[in-house]
Nucleic acid binder design. Structure first.
Length: 434
DNA sequence: AACATATTCAACCGCTGGAAA
DNA sequence: ATTTCCAGCGGTTGAATATGT
């Protein structure tokens, strides 16, 4: 698509500020300005040192041949430095230009680009907030690239968009999360994993960033403190049981040593890194009450929006959260949040979701396998897109996952200990922690 | 009071995929 | 069919603040 402003393609680094001829010149000037004085200083140092040496040396004549060679070498070195500096100068300019083009997002190039382009970063000031909010109130949020320009802000479009969506939007709720909100986050995280946008969609006025931060800073610790692994939502005791039944005795003893330390969370996190072979996933449903049915019902309600009443109040669904005592991970056979089966493994529903990246950091699934699986599902999912009427990608993903469950009826189960391969060496676990 | 450490959370980064040309 | 633009997403960072020593 031709750029409407006649420039080259925008790049990610500043999200919409284009490279222009003046920027190239400015970048070069900046680079030369930095390198020039450095070169001058180096030359001056060399000349001064040599002069001083020649003046003070009484044995100058004796060492003339040596000095000649030395000076020749140093001169050659200076030429080399000069060439290197010139190349560096050109390189910096090129890096800035190229960085602008392809989106290099770190290091000198980034700083140069920021400086050259005069794009501000960091905390927003109240004045900036006012400018952005009043502009959006008048013109809407149609083209984020143009918004900072038109609003008189020295920000990139992406920064403006994030500021608006995460902070300035009038429908946002600021302040502490309520217990009910915590409840919802934990329940949905147990099924969706780190799908923050999907979880946030269940909490009016909260952004995915809010939910993510709250989870990482509060809820994770809260669950750990209650003896529940925040990654798998399983009790630690179950994970330890899995360790002892799965690993060889020497490995178990190493793990036990590690467990005695103060790295419980890290260890358990690593222990949940199971290899997922998507070709062997079994989404069959040995338990007629398991979560897949409950979840599918919820997804069907209100065009893909999950119905909280059913989650919170029952119909055979376990109540995870006891308002008086915090989280309650019971052993109900029809549990939703914990989804624990008698053998300690997660149910197919949870496994299905996790198999699609719900707990990417915990499940050592390969990106390639996941991508292939997505592609396989894509056609089927597209047929169901109308269910997610608001067009959010998360809803598509939900549909994909649901679709996947139906699609792979005859495959094996991800988290069933009988089928899981543990791919971590005990030494690796310990080394990582230490 | 001064310093060190931990916590919080706004802002950012890089990637992805849909839409548009 | 391909290229380009744009917005959404999850992970990460780092400044500001709180808490501990």
């Amino acid at each position: 698509m031709p750029n409407p402003e006649g420039g080259r393609r925008d790049i990610a680094i500043t999200d919409g500020v284009k490279m222009t001829g003046s920027s190239v010149v400015a970048a070069t000037v900046v680079a030369v300005t930095v390198v020039g004085p450095l070169l001058g200083l180096m030359s001056f140092s060399l000349v001064a040192t040599m002069t001083l040496f020649l003046i003070v040396s009484p044995l100058m004549l004796i060492f003339v041949p040596v000095l000649t060679v030395t000076v020749a070498i140093l001169a050659a070195a200076m030429v080399g430095f000069g060439v290197a500096a010139a190349m560096w100068t050109v390189g910096i300019a090129a890096m800035v230009c190229r960085g602008r083009e392809i989106g290099i997002g770190s290091g000198v190039a980034k700083k140069m680009v920021e400086w050259v382009e005069n794009v501000k970063r960091g905390q927003w000031t109240p004045e900036e907030d006012n400018k952005l909010a009043s502009y959006i109130a008048q013109h809407g949020t149609r083209n984020w690239r143009l918004i900072p320009k038109n609003a008189g802000l020295q920000r990139c479009g992406k920064s403006c968009r994030l500021r608006w969506t995460n902070y300035l939007r009038p429908d946002l709720k600021h302040g502490q999360f309520s217990e009910a909100e915590e409840h919802i986050i934990v329940k949905f995280h147990s099924v969706l994993g780190n799908r923050w946008s999907l979880i946030a969609a269940q909490l009016p006025g909260r952004t995915d960033n809010d939910v993510k931060n709250y989870w990482n800073t509060k809820l994770k610790k809260k669950l750990s403190g209650m003896g529940i692994d925040p990654v798998t939502h399983k009790p630690f005791s179950h994970l330890m049981a899995e360790i002892t039944t799965t690993l060889n005795p020497p490995q178990v003893s190493h793990l036990a040593e590690a467990a005695l330390g103060c790295f419980k969370d890290e260890m358990l996190h690593l222990l949940t890194k199971k290899r997922v072979d998507l070709n062997q996933i079994n989404f069959s449903n040995p338990n007629p009450n398991h979560n897949a049915n409950n979840f599918n019902q919820m997804v069907d309600n209100e065009a893909g929006k999950i119905k909280m009443d059913g989650l919170e109040h029952g119909n055979g669904i376990m109540k995870l959260w006891d308002m008086g005592h915090g989280f309650s991970y019971g052993s109900s056979s029809s549990s939703f949040g914990n989804d624990e089966r008698n053998d300690g493994s997660a149910s197919p529903a949870v496994a299905a979701w996790r198999g699609h990246g719900g707990i990417r950091t915990a499940v050592a699934e390969t990106a390639a396998a996941e991508e292939e699986e997505r592609r396989k599902l894509k056609g089927e999912v597209m047929d169901q897109e109308e269910i997610g009427s608001d067009g959010r990608r998360g809803d598509h993903r939900m549909m994909m996952m649901r679709s996947h469950q139906h699609h792979d009826q005859h495959q094996h189960h991800v988290f069933n200990v009988d089928n899981v391969l543990w791919d971590l060496q005990a030494d690796d676990l310990i080394n990582h922690m230490v």
